[in-house]
Design a protein around this nucleic acid. Structure first.
Lengths: 332, 332
DNA sequence: ACGCGTATGGAATACGTATGCATTGATCTG
DNA sequence: CAGATCAATGCATACGTATTCCATACGCGT
C-alpha cells in the first residue's frame, strides 16, 4: 500500500541504499543515477517514512513546546513565531499543554519522540527539567526560567521592566500604588515585582500588602483583583499589572466598576501584545520583542541539540522599553 | 545510553518479546512474570520508543491540525479543546500552520507521521484533501468544509446564523445595512452571507455591492472596512460581520472614527468568543458551541481512523443562537 | 504410560531508512 | 602493462518494537 524506498529502487533499477543516498544528495552517487532515482521517486510519489528515518538516525526533527493554555492571549504570540522559526530551522512543532495529565505529559516527552523541548511554563519548583536532564533531552526555557545558573533560557529583563514602571508612576505623582503580580514561583512574576519594589523603595514609596495581589497571568486575575483593591481603606490611584492580559482584565473590571481610566485610575501592563494597542484599550505598557524572544529560544535550542551551545548554559536577555499610551495620567 | 525493551528483558530475565507482551497486558503472560517485568521496567525508567512502536504497528497516535494563524483569536479557541479531546482519546497533536511553505507542509502531512489530519482552514479550492485521499490519510474538516457531499466535517449552521441576524436587524428597523463577510471561497464566508442575504430579501431589504466587503476573517479586515463603508453616500446604520474577530476590528475602528456604538452604528458578530463578552465590547453576536465543534471533529476523526465512521461521509452541524448584548439598537 | 490440550515464553522476523564495509570497474601511474 | 587508486554502487546490518510461529512443560483423562 504505502510506497517505500524499495519500490523506488526497483523502478529505478538500483539498490535501496542508492535511493537513500541519491535523495539525500550524497556526493558518492553519480549525477546520472541521482536523476534516475529522482524521477522514479517522483513517478511513485514517494515520501520517506519519518518513522524509519527516526529509528535509523535517532533524530526526529521534532520539538515539543509546552504551554499552559492557548486561549490565554499571551501564548499564541509566542507559539506562532516559535513555530515559524522552528520550521525554518527544519524542525516541526509538537504542542503540549501543561494541563494534560502529568503522567501522560511525561511519557510524551520522554519516549524519544522529541529532539528537544521548549518550556514556556516553568515554575521554580517544576520537576520537569530534572526529568529531561536525566533522559538527556535538550531543552530551553522561554520567557520564564528557574533563575538558576546553568539554564539555557531566552528571557526578558523583567526586573528592569518593573523598575521602569515604578519610575514612571513615581514621576507622575502617584503614591498609593497597587501591584497585581504573577505567581511568586515564576521568574516573570518574581522579578517584575522585585524591580518594581526596589525602584519604588528608592523613590520612598511603600507597597503595603493590602495593595498587592498575586495570581496566574490570566484575565480573571486582573478582573477579580480590581474590586478587592478598590475596597481597601486607601484605594490605589495606579495599578501595575504583571502582564497585559491581567491589565486587560483590570480595564474591563474598571468599566464594570464605573471607573474612568486614566482619570480615576492609572493602569499599566507588561508585554505590549498587539491587543494593547486596540482603541478600546490603548494600554500603557512595557514592550519587549516577543517575536525575537521566541526566535532566540528556537535558535538556542537547536544550537543545544547540535552541540554548539555553551556547555555552561546560556541566558539571552531582551531589553524592555516603556510604551506610553492612554491608560496613565499625572495625579492631580 | 537510552534504555530499550532488551535492557528490561535482561534485567527481568525474560525475552524482549515477553517484555513487550507484559507491558501491553497481553493475556499470554502470567501474572508473576508480568509483575517481574513491570518492576524491571520501573527500575530502569523504561519508556517505549515511539519510533519503534510506530514502525512496527504502522500507527503513530499522532494527529495533525492545520490552522492559518494562531494569533488570530479565533483559532486558540478551537485548538485548545481539540488538543484536550485528542489527548483524552489517546492521540497527540501536531500543530501545522498553513503559511508554511506548501511543499514543506505537504511532506509533513504525507510522510506517514500522522494517523489523521484536522483541516481548520479549508478553502473550496484547496488541493490538500485530494492529496490526503490519494495517500489514504483520514481527515476531517473543522468549521469550514468544501460543501461537497461525502465530506467528513464538523461545522456550524452558518446559513441559519446569517438568517438570524438579518431577522433581528429588520425587526430593529434597519434598512441601510452593510455586510463584512469572509472570503467567498470558504463555506463559513459563503453560507453566512447566503443566509443573511436570503432573509434580508424576504424582508424586502436590499444589500447593494457598495455596502458589502469581503476579506479574511481577521481583525484588520474589519478595521479597514469600516471607514470605506462610512464613506459611501448612504452609510449603513448596521453592520453584520463575518465573525467576532472582524467585528472587534470594526468596534475599534468605530472608536477611531468617533462613532458611538450602538447609538450611531449597530455591530453584530458571529462565534461568541469569550472576548465578545468583555465590558469593552459587549458584542451582540451569534453563538455556537465552539468547544463542542472541536470535540465533535476530534471524535469523528478518530472514528474515521478506526474505520467506524460512515463510509459515505458524515457532516455534523451545530445550531446557532442569537446573543443580544450591547452593540445593537433600534433605529430611531 | 501415553496422548492431547493448554499455558507460557522464546526465537525469528517485519516495519523503512541510513550507513559501514565490500565489491566492481575504471582510470591513473610509473 | 602491472599495480595502485578512486568513483560508484550493492550488501548487510542496525535502529526498537510488535507479533507470528514454534517449543517446552505441565495437567489431565484413559
Amino acid at each position: 500500500m504505502t510506497i517505500t524506498s524499495h519500490d523506488v529502487a526497483r523502478l529505478a533499477g538500483v539498490s535501496q541504499a542508492t535511493v537513500s543516498r541519491a535523495l539525500r544528495d550524497d556526493h558518492r552517487v553519480s549525477a546520472a543515477t541521482r536523476e534516475k532515482v529522482r524521477r522514479a521517486a517522483q513517478a511513485l510519489n514517494y515520501v520517506p517514512s519519518e518513522a524509519g528515518r527516526t529509528l535509523s538516525t535517532r533524530s526526529t526533527r521534532r520539538i515539543g513546546v509546552i504551554v499552559t493554555d492557548l486561549t490565554n492571549p499571551f501564548y499564541p504570540h509566542v507559539v506562532a513565531p516559535l513555530h515559524d522559526e522552528l520550521q525554518a530551522l527544519g524542525y516541526r512543532m509538537m504542542l503540549i499543554t501543561e494541563r494534560s495529565d502529568e503522567a501522560v505529559a511525561g511519557e510524551n516527552l520522554l519516549d524519544q519522540s522529541l529532539d528537544g523541548v521548549v518550556l514556556a511554563t516553568a515554575t521554580t519548583e517544576s520537576r520537569l527539567p530534572a526529568q529531561l536532564d536525566r533522559r538527556g533531552i535538550p531543552y530551553v526555557f522561554l520567557n520564564r526560567d528557574t533563575g538558576q545558573p546553568g539554564d539555557y533560557a531566552s528571557v526578558v529583563d523583567n526586573e528592569g521592566g518593573g523598575r521602569l514602571v515604578a519610575g514612571v508612576l513615581a514621576e507622575l505623582g502617584h503614591r498609593r500604588i497597587a501591584g497585581i503580580f504573577g505567581s511568586p514561583n515564576t521568574t516573570t512574576g518574581r522579578d517584575r515585582e522585585l524591580g518594581f519594589r526596589l525602584a519604588l523603595a528608592e523613590a520612598g514609596i511603600g507597597l503595603p500588602d493590602s495593595r498587592v495581589v498575586r495570581g496566574a497571568f490570566e484575565y480573571d486575575t486582573g478582573y477579580e483583583a480590581l474590586p478587592r483593591l478598590l475596597a481597601a481603606d486607601e484605594p490605589p490611584t495606579a495599578v501595575f499589572c504583571g502582564n497585559d492580559v491581567v491589565a486587560i482584565g483590570v480595564l474591563n473590571a474598571a468599566i464594570a466598576a464605573g471607573l474612568r481610566v486614566p482619570d480615576d485610575l492609572t493602569v499599566i501592563g507588561f508585554d505590549d501584545l498587539p491587543m494593547a494597542d486596540w482603541e478600546v484599550f490603548r494600554l500603557t505598557t512595557v514592550r519587549h520583542d516577543l517575536r525575537e524572544l521566541a526566535r532566540q529560544a528556537a535558535r538556542l535550542l537547536v544550537r543545544r541539540i547540535t552541540g554548539e551551545a555553551d556547555p555552561a548554559g546560556e541566558r539571552l536577555i531582551l531589553p524592555t522599553e516603556f510604551v506610553p499610551r492612554a491608560t496613565h495620567a499625572r495625579l492631580t
